[in-house]
Amino acid sequence: MIRLGIMSFAHLHAEAYVENVRAIPDAELVGAADDDKTRGAHFARALGVRLWPTYEDLLAQQLHGVIVCSENARHRALVEMASRAGVHVLCEKPLATTLTDAHAMLEACKQGGVSLMVALPMRFSAPLLEVRRVLEARRLGEIFCCVSTNQGQNPRRHRDWFVDKRLAGGGAVMDHTVHLVDTLRWYLRSEVAEVYAQTTDLLSGGNGDVETGGLILLTFANGVFATIDCSWSRPASYPAWGGLTVELIGQHGVMRVDAFRQNLTIYPERSPGIHWEYWGSDANQGMIAEFVSAIRERRAPTVTGVDGCRALEVIVAAYESARTGRPVRLRME
């Protein structure tokens, strides 16, 4: 049995991960801990998870791995705690809110001899995997550019800290850029060389503290350019939380993937109004399964802290570009 724990319920994905762990025959969810006692008690009860009084208590349960779902700015402290206890880590995205924290986390896990996986579930999305196969078979030929979106509702409807700069590290750019940076790196097999970004706080719900919309234009080392729309531009009435799309312009044609477009449209007689019910494969399940498999097989996971670090470098550059109005070159390693 692979013994797993959840550190913090701050991120709303924790709720999904509980079910994902339970669906894996040789994994066991030993329990959870949360520095917010009220929140911990609430979710532990709602999800039927055993709650340990402190993170130290949880880590003392001979765990193989933990899933860190704290507020973004608190990832580092929990990852370092787990690495000291010799427990493998799956950390919610973004890996951290500063590069200093991200580098410290990579180092701590290296020192502790544990692997650090970052929660980038789109690598396990069935439609996105299908596109990767098309690209690997070179059916589109050379790729020239990509247009991608990861738009969503303002996440404060689930948790207030998403619009608290101190805890989230930023707004829409911090929240919705990493999935696409990672997907594009994965598709293009190249690293980001330059970042241009413009942000807006005109979309509501930013609390005056964080940006609520952003457009980013990346240029990769291989010359391909790509835009990312990370805006919280989906109103409360939108039929789903949001979505993720990637359009690829290639030598032999064009292709567009809409990762969450496998759904039924429901028109109720009454509220909550029109909504989409998703029936596609669960990408999170593939991600949690990979975390467990990597532990079982004593190997590094396919998506690591380094990938999380690369995505964060782009975010940091995007904030700088939005501030100065100039493109920012990334230092290539």
Partner: peptide, 18 residues
């Protein structure tokens, strides 16, 4: 305070035009 969308052709999970 809202979104106006003109989505173009009916969206599908994957579209490819060669």
């Amino acid at each position: 305070a809202g979104l106006i969308e003109f989505p173009g052709p009916a969206p599908a999970a994957i579209e490819m035009h060669l």
